[in-house]
Write a protein that binds this DNA or RNA. Structure first.
Lengths: 176, 176
DNA sequence: GTCTATATAGGGATAGAC
DNA sequence: GTCTATCCCTATATAGAC
């Protein structure tokens, strides 16, 4: 609380005056982060684009958002794992991640034999995993592969093109 | 410390007697977890298997290890992000993740035109991302896709086959 | 080595003046 | 609304008897 107050240029008493308690402050921060983040992601998920373009569009923009909020993912993950119930209470009146349209789109592509059969949920998780994971493993990746801060950012930026290529390569109907 | 002492069936004073400080206790726990984990992962990374089989072997066994230590990944990620310097000091005298052999193997496969050109580091990160990420996003995935605990574990187990299929589909030389 | 009792510090929270 | 001073509690850590 002291550190937060210092950074905000006020004192602890003021923090308590505004937010009543540390817990309430936390919830406010968390909610605020999500309020900003979720709508953007939903917009990407539900953009009106053909499947392959949508994957490219999603990954490119999602990674950009992640790079602007590089500490958010590990913050969210830590708190959610500490307190899984909080997720329910924080999201219950709000917009969640809306994956229905995207799932249907994937299933349609399978039916039309544009792509090989795949469970939409598995595909979506693969896509999100490849976007988010490197960001939260940042220090480990830098260590294992001997990257500088700059090299790491470069590495992530390359993934904007690399991940869609990787995914589309995998799912597109193979020539028989 | 009280909670740890209780679970260990001793008292706080004993904890301090053994470990000197909370910080030292933490380091001991962390080191212990890594000492157990890293050698197993290195073994999987350096198994003497052809590329595709190695990917299957790695993913299958890595996910099994993760399921046995389902809280470890988010614990490690949180602590490393809090304290990136600690990673260096904890690993400096120890075996790190050894990716050299695997990287060479991937490059060889590219040269022999067994697979499409790809940066080995990107491929390795993709693979690890798809394995670890769902485990640390567990509560969020359960919420978004309405899974029970049991359904989630089932979902992860399916990925033992799903991920290698997805990767190999992506990298294997396309028919021209 | 193991315990009880206690010192000490730090952080969340409030009282009360302005 | 904003500040200073202070309360209160908990958690780390130690002293010292056994």
């Amino acid at each position: 609380m002291q550190e937060i107050a210092d950074n905000a240029g006020i004192n602890k008493a003021m923090l308590h005056y505004y937010f009543r308690s540390k817990d309430k402050l936390f919830d406010a921060v968390f909610e605020d982060a999500l309020k900003d983040f979720l709508p953007k992601v939903n917009e990407l998920l539900n953009a009106e684009l053909p499947l392959f373009e949508k994957i490219e569009h999603f990954v490119e923009n999602y990674i950009s958002i992640l790079l602007e909020n590089i500490y958010l993912p590990s913050f969210i993950i830590y708190e959610i794992n500490q307190n899984p119930e909080k997720l329910t209470s924080l999201l219950k009146n709000k917009k969640d991640l809306h994956t229905e349209i995207f799932k249907r789109q994937i299933n349609d592509a399978v039916k039309k034999k544009l792509i090989d059969p795949i469970d939409p949920v598995q595909l979506i998780i693969n896509m999100i995993a490849m976007c988010i994971f490197p960001v939260i493993w940042k220090p480990i990746i830098m260590k294992i592969f001997g990257m500088s801060e700059k090299a790491f950012i470069e590495f992530i930026k390359l993934r904007k093109k690399e991940i869609p290529r990787f995914i589309i390569n995998s799912i597109k109907k193979s020539v028989k």
